[in-house]
Design a protein around this nucleic acid. Structure first.
Length: 560
RNA sequence: UGGGGUGUCGCCAAGUGGUAAGGCACGGGAUUUUGAUUCCCGCAUUCCCAGGUUCGAAUCCUGGCACCCCAGCCA
């Protein structure tokens, strides 16, 4: 990790585990788990959970399992179980041989359900979904008992077996826990434990089952079977904890795991719910799960974020139980910090303006030395071609400007990075009156040396017109113009129409011609970029802007 | 109007009765062949509000207020 890991205060879950270990409440090594449902790609909110669960296991020399919570075949598929594993691995975590599926436990889950029935703790209910809702009551009124609540154990056992055997149609029956229809906690009002689902092919169990267990029933038992010591989830499950404990207490499970909750991550100007991300992908509002504008792990990876920067981010935001909305600036600082250390420097001109050096030989050419990383000479250097015509950034020239502008102006001088000092003598305009070219002269005595008797304040980047590689560059901005799209009636109304800007005709120094996709470079004075992985077989490589460099000039010029 | 949570700087976030850490952002300065980096300096007399206990309260007590979650045969 190239980012300096500053010591951070201990968060509440770390403290709980440390104390459990110190007091002996938990004797052995701790066991946590990351339990995604394979119904979508992982996003940075999941990264927080992954870093937490795997990180805690690392900190205390315990283990962390990867377990797919695949109890709802209707929404899940193999593409997602594969992408999830790839993402967790990419983040740098290893579950070794502990890859589990809740569906691995279907048979055991079934036997435990029989135990509940035998003990009078569960019953088969024939009410329809709507009738169940009506019987449930409201937040302020208690519910009413189902007319099927007092069925005999024998009848329940028989009915449950026949449910499994496929004798009843979808929705006709459900297995329910017998708890308390008057509980102020809605989750305890005889929650459904099993439902009937015919005709779906489960990605792991195929057509072996037509009844599927619910999350509230499956999760605690899966935890217990795996010997999970600390079952960590997000705050919206806090109301489910009494049910989690109820299940653990009413079934002969090998151990008693405990559930702890923390608050989920919210990032400004984006959405973090799988439902909404699925909508963006499904309605082609973005180019896919790995669109570089997406807050998904796959999107961030394609954008050029490093695993280290994401882990650093998760460490910086901390773990608490309070609602939060983290600024993008926090994430951006993490990737800048990482890339500043490791990215090699290159030059690239996004909006080219042609310069002709009138006093440079027509067919002259020289190769100048440039450091790969000015602060790290050990990273070596490369050669950059220089000739009579070069491109500079259009915004680095102004016909006239205030004294604060230290780039090129008509009649003024500026240094070409790693090259000579040039002076602008003349502006050439096209038919529309737009600046199309600059006629300049270079000072041959200024290569690696300051000019005599003058001070040149500015340094700008450039690319040889004859040698530069023409390319397309994708500039990304926030996906939403709304800080909290979730607060909108329709979150799609908050989308930023300018979140992607494609620049054509950009020029890059030759050293950038054949770089592998995903490797980050700093285009000096501009930002960090990497070749897009989606363009591997494209004729010309497209580059993605990962993040801009900090730009204090933008603040100054904005004030004028 | 039931139950469960949360409220410390613009944003994260330490703090657990002894007189408000840190990071991001922001402002100022130094160095710089990246207006980048790096380096200094500044940035909560105050902890949702109001009472109370105490020599002393962000921390304890009482009463308010605000916000989040819960009425799927989703997870």
């Amino acid at each position: 990790m190239t980012i300096e890991t500053t010591s951070r205060p201990e968060h509440f879950l770390h403290r709980i585990i440390r104390e459990d270990l110190e007091s002996g409440r938990v004797p052995g090594p701790i066991v946590t788990r990351f339990p995604p449902e394979p119904n979508g790609f992982l996003h940075i909110g999941h990264a927080k959970s992954i870093c937490l669960n795997f990180g805690l296991a690392e900190d205390f020399s315990g283990r962390c399992n990867l377990r797919f919570d695949d109890t709802n075949p209707h929404k899940e598929n193999l593409e997602f179980v594969e992408s999830i594993q790839a993402d967790v691995r990419w983040l740098g975590y290893d579950w070794e041989d502990r890859l589990y599926f809740a569906s691995d436990y279907f048979e055991q889950l079934y036997v435990f359900a029989q135990e509940l029935i035998r003990n009078g703790d569960a019953y088969i209910c024939d009410l329809t979904a709507e009738e169940i809702r009506e019987h449930r009551g409201t937040l302020t009124e208690p519910g009413r008992n189902s007319p099927y609540r007092e069925r005999s154990v024998d009848e329940n056992m028989d009915l449950f077996a026949r449910m499994r055997a496929g004798e009843f149609p979808d929705g006709s029956k459900v297995l329910r826990a017998k708890i308390d229809m008057a509980s102020p906690n809605m989750n305890m009002r005889d929650p459904a434990l099993y439902r009937i689902r015919h005709g779906v092919i489960h990605h792991q169990t195929g057509e072996a089952w037509c009844i599927y267990p619910m999350y509230d029933y499956t999760h605690p038992i899966s935890d217990a079977l795996e010997g999970i010591t600390h079952s960590i989830c997000t705050l919206e499950f806090e109301d489910h904890r009494p049910l989690y404990d109820w299940v653990i207490q009413h079934v002969s499970v090998p151990c008693r795991p405990h559930q702890y909750e923390f608050s989920r991550l919210n990032l400004a100007y984006t959405v973090m719910s799988k439902r909404k991300l699925t909508t963006l992908v499904g309605e082609n509002l973005v180019a896919g799960w790995d669109d570089p504008r997406m807050p998904t792990i796959a999107g961030l990876r394609r954008r050029g974020y490093t695993p280290e920067s994401i882990r650093e981010f998760c460490s910086r935001i901390g773990v608490t139980r309070s609602d939060n909305l983290v600024e993008m600036g926090m994430l951006e600082d993490c990737i800048r910090g990482d890339l500043n250390e490791r990215a090699h420097r290159r030059m690239g001109v996004l909006r080219p303006l042609r310069i002709v050096l009138t006093n440079y030989p027509e067919d002259g050419e020289e190769w100048l030395s440039a450091a790969n990383h000015p602060q790290k000479p050990e990273l070596g250097e490369r050669k950059i071609p220089f000739c009579r015509e070069v491109y500079i950034e259009h915004e680095d020239f102004m016909e006239t400007a205030s004294k604060k502008f230290k780039r090129l102006v008509l009649g003024g001088e500026v240094r070409l990075r790693y090259g000579y000092v040039i002076r602008c003598d003349e502006i050439v305009r096209d038919a529309a009156g737009e600046i199309s070219e600059l006629r300049c002269t270079y000072d041959p005595d200024t290569l690696g040396a300051d000019p005599e008797g003058r001070k040149v304040r500015g340094v700008i980047h450039w690319v040889s017109a004859r040698h530069g590689v023409e390319t397309e560059v994708n500039l990304y901005d926030r996906l939403f113009v709304e800080e909290s799209p979730d607060a909108l009636e329709d979150f799609r109304q908050g989308l930023n129409p300018d979140s992607l800007q494609v620049l054509e005709g950009c020029r890059l120094e030759p050293a950038l011609a054949d770089v592998p996709a995903g490797e980050a470079f700093q285009f000096e004075r501009v930002g960090y970029f990497c070749r897009d992985s989606g363009s591997a077989d494209a004729k010309r490589p497209a580059f993605n802007r990962i993040v801009t460099l900090r730009d204090s000039w933008a603040k100054i010029s904005a004030q004028e």
